[in-house]
Design a protein around this nucleic acid. Structure first.
Lengths: 209, 209
DNA sequence: GTCTATAACTAGATAGAC
DNA sequence: GTCTATCTAGTTATAGAC
């Protein structure tokens, strides 16, 4: 296993748990059992390392997810919102096959990236992987044509919040669920629970304000 | 204006924008125009300062919100979910009268607190202000009795995510909305938009998994 | 490519003069 | 209560030997 990969793996796990700001290069390199200077040799800076960690997931997820959404829209009959959000399940869970804990790590990182580091990750995501977002907006518009683009904008951000926040604290939530309700739960259960919630939210009646 | 208040005001604003980890005591004291050592003199540590900033809001919000929720549940007819979530509006907007930008700052801080600092704020909130949470769970249960406690647990966390995430990036979202849709928007508009979303989410049909 | 050593800087906290 | 000065420990990043 190369030094580069060792760094990426350690960074991924630590970033997910402690956030980007909360993780030092020293912690990463000591967990990876490589030299501190290796990060700067291989990635140039901490910011570039963050991008590399995210890209490793996004390069796998983005085409799969875009394809699923485009395919759904090709049907004669328009999709419903539960179907739109269900399109995320396979591409997201596929990350578990690429990497141990891939799905959970990725979603937690996404959550971190939106609140740590003043929106730099939002910028990176929207400029580097815009096709995911546009195919998603497209699918929602087909499923619920009465929604204005403005209303879609807001509701997609609410959805992003729901998912990202839930996932960034999913470990704690799963712990609580196991203790309080004595139910074994994992990340795919959480995903299945969140789909009806966000589908209903996006599909809520339009409120004139 | 006392040194203590000057520190609280500066910390509140900086924490909201940059997060707790992302704000140094030096930034706070220099914006407050007080001496660095004053923070430790008045609050003891950065952690205690964070608690003090949050408590200033929670001491006002908590009784008002609890009262509104309890009152709603006293009616003969059970409340609907839109009414439950609408109960939050007045107590939240009231924070604007206590402090300039109070509502927005508080909600942003709440968002920060859930992702920064490994759940220490979650612990602080649930142990110090438990009556808000229990009166909320109670109201939801009255509005939608078919929901199991476990399902309520999950959906309330999804809701927390929606609100907290939206609010922690509300400045950026409002900017985008103003630019892309040419619509003046403020925090109370965002709150009004989010209510139908979360009400529909919590009220979603139950999915057997 | 990988290492040691260290530069250059920032963090939170505190002792002690006033 | 408020100040300066300083401590200790942490940070990212890099120069240069191997």
């Amino acid at each position: 296993m190369s030094t580069k990969t060792k760094i990426l793996d350690a960074a991924e796990q630590l970033f997910a748990v402690r956030g980007f700001n909360g993780t030092s290069l020293r912690e990463i390199t000591s967990q990876a059992e490589v030299n501190l200077a290796a990060v700067n040799y291989h990635f140039g800076s901490k910011k570039e390392l963050i991008k590399a960690v995210m890209s490793r997931f996004l390069d796998v997820l983005s085409p799969r997810l875009t394809l699923a959404l485009v395919k759904l829209c090709e049907d004669e009959t328009p999709p419903n919102l539960v179907e739109v959000f269900s399109s995320f399940v396979e591409p997201l869970l596929h990350l578990n096959e690429v990497k141990e804990n891939g799905t959970s790590n990725f979603l937690q990182l996404l959550g971190r990236g939106y609140t740590d580091s003043q929106g730099f990750l939002r910028w990176f995501l929207t400029t580097t992987y815009p096709e995911v977002i546009s195919s998603f907006v497209n699918a929602v518009q087909k499923a619920y044509p009465e929604l204005t683009r403005e209303e879609i904008f807001w509701r997609l951000h609410f959805t992003m919040g729901t998912v990202v926040f839930t996932m960034s604290s999913s470990d704690a939530l799963i712990d609580i669920a196991v203790n309080d309700f004595d139910k074994q739960t994992d990340i795919s259960d959480v995903i299945k629970r969140v789909i009806p919630y966000v589908a209903a939210g996006v599909g809520a009646p339009i409120n004139k304000i």
